[in-house]
């Protein structure tokens, strides 16, 4: 599994990068970049959680 950002939905609130810094970095305009391609089991769970928390519902777990 990996996490993708829907760039149309994303508003750059930054909650994801704050909650899960090992998975995200922010670009110079405050929008998240996913820094890890493949997720292990633990990160997968945390990624699913942060996807639920995103106020813009802009994160998707895909295979």
């Amino acid at each position: 599994m990996r996490l993708v950002v829907d760039p149309i939905a994303c508003d750059g609130r930054g909650l994801c990068a704050e909650a899960l810094p090992e998975l995200f970095t922010l670009d110079d305009w405050g929008f998240p970049i996913v820094v890890r391609d493949q997720l292990d089991e633990r990160l997968e769970e945390e990624a699913a959680e942060v996807a639920r928390l995103c106020p813009r519902l802009a994160l998707r777990l895909v295979t």
Partner: peptide, 12 residues
């Protein structure tokens, strides 16, 4: 004008 990195990044 839909995606943040495109809107702000390209202008910058």
């Amino acid at each position: 004008g839909q995606c943040g990195p495109c809107i702000f990044g390209l202008a910058a």
